[in-house]
Design a protein around this nucleic acid. Sequence first.
DNA 1: GTTATTTACTTAAACGTTTAAGTAAATAAA
DNA 2: TTTATTTACTTAAACGTTTAAGTAAATAAC
Lengths: 343, 343
Amino acid sequence: MEDNTNGKKINMKALAKVLNLSTATISKALRDSYDISEQTKARVKEAADRLNYVANPHASSLRKHLSNTIAIVIPEIADSFFSQVINGIESIAGKEKYHFLIYLTHDSYEREVSILNEFTSGRVDGVLISVASNTSDTAHISKLQQAGIPIVFFDRDCAQLPAASVTTDDFNSAYLATNHLVEQGCKKISLITVQGYVSIFSSREEGYRKALMEHAIVSGSSDIVYCANKYTDGNITLISEHMASARPDGLLLTVEHLATSAYLACHQMKLRIPQDIKIVCFTNQITAPVLDPPLTTILQPAFEMGQKAVGLLFEYLSHNYIKLEEEHFVLPSRLVTRESTGN
Amino acid sequence: MEDNTNGKKINMKALAKVLNLSTATISKALRDSYDISEQTKARVKEAADRLNYVANPHASSLRKHLSNTIAIVIPEIADSFFSQVINGIESIAGKEKYHFLIYLTHDSYEREVSILNEFTSGRVDGVLISVASNTSDTAHISKLQQAGIPIVFFDRDCAQLPAASVTTDDFNSAYLATNHLVEQGCKKISLITVQGYVSIFSSREEGYRKALMEHAIVSGSSDIVYCANKYTDGNITLISEHMASARPDGLLLTVEHLATSAYLACHQMKLRIPQDIKIVCFTNQITAPVLDPPLTTILQPAFEMGQKAVGLLFEYLSHNYIKLEEEHFVLPSRLVTRESTGN
DNA sequence: GTTATTTACTTAAACGTTTAAGTAAATAAA
DNA sequence: TTTATTTACTTAAACGTTTAAGTAAATAAC
């Protein structure tokens, strides 16, 4: 191979020297500038290919004030919903040659703040975020917006903020799911959820309440159990104790990992699903149909939400001049009934 | 607020002007250089904090030839194993103030090649990769190594390459799992797996074969089913057809998503697990204990593998001068027996 | 009291791109 | 034939850091 590079990493200057051209010409040729002859473009591209030239993204980002990178900020990654969202984002961002950095808040407001604060540095061109469940003060988000970094919320938004959002119809889904439990004969339905300020949890709670109200089922705060928002034995205990004391005949679970906990609790207490207790859960786990018994789920359009969120961001970034703060999309979730609510 | 910045993004030059210092002093003060007085350091840090100064990472990376970013290249993300690995990586990388870019190959060799080729640009300081199952030509990986980018393989390595690896004992796990099936009374055990060049699949296949051999169970190629490496209805059909024709009484499944497919196939065919057929699967799904019936699994130390892999990379990057190509770690997986192999 | 060393800074170049502005040669317009 | 325009480049500055090298003032050594 006569490539004159001795295995050293090649940069634009070296490439220019090889071709007897200026770096400006190389740069423009590679970006297909009208300013460069077709012949030269071909020569440059051939040489770049042959010598494995790849432009240094830091130099490029520094000069252009564009990173071609977006940040995805989520509470957890070991969750079917979030990983499917990432798949959706990747399906679009990958094609557009965008890179994405992932940040996990572990559902902690403090981490979220320190993660977002760093984004004023120009590291990313935009942010897709699903906020921590205990995020109520949104100053860190406003600060980012004021710094000119576009933000799109998905799933968990901060309703009080003027920002783009892609969510699902949590209120209605919870309402329909609760109705379904009532229709299947439940008289005492408990909500197993997570404490948090974000709207998805309050919406799900309100949907649940509305359904109960409409069926004249009295429910008090003792029918709601607040669990930790991660998979722990503690949650199993919480649910067991609740079932022992409140003796519900229906459960609405608002997060994925609660399905396993609730099932284990039922198995431990020898409660038969659905005969003794019926269960619905918000989850995208593919194992739902093979659980014991198959689980009735509220299936969220995770992949599509990811696509839509990143699509909005790209539309903004490509200067199609949409106003992000006016973009709000609510994609429908679907109640998939299975044996866990059958009879 | 008298911050002289009018809401514009502040850079080092602006900060220097505010403090009547040179940018060199600012830079050194923020990095705690011995060259700067404590008094000045305090002044600088206070002002930086107050004005929300965050250094531009592109400028910094360009100058230092360090990105403080690593790449994680995996086949899929909607998989408990990989998402737990990411959690492990994040648990270390997050603390070290490293950022990570995620790239999905969708198990395609071509995508893997084009993703890795880009890494010679200096975008990342190192790469953690689990190769695509059909990667046999490893030129793209060697090229990256020659360019001086450190690589650590996890789970799926390229055994022929001199590179660090963190794997689990696939051979032995498959061997033990198959033995377990035999001990539980299986006489005809099928392997449901995925076609691929990577060692995990061949190791699992060999472990399976060795166990059968030792028990003098004759097995032919008709006992092995090669599925697509993603969750599809096609796989369910493949498995059903195999069970109809080969009539196995035991199944060893080598990838997570096959558990759901196999269970559905059994349900459809009215085969009772474990009475008619016993099942073991390599999976980290938390729902394993609540499946119908609870699934015997080979649980991989995903989180620890992520930690170990990124730990090796950091040890190398911090110039502790370990030789990556000599680092090979094999972490043990654990057979967790449940009803799917009971009697 | 002169010289050497230390302290606490500053100056300026460099990292590898992109791009506005400039230019010489070729072509078109008058 | 002269002038205007177009083509295909080059020059040089800029992006925001880091750092080697330099320096003036203060302190220490002799």
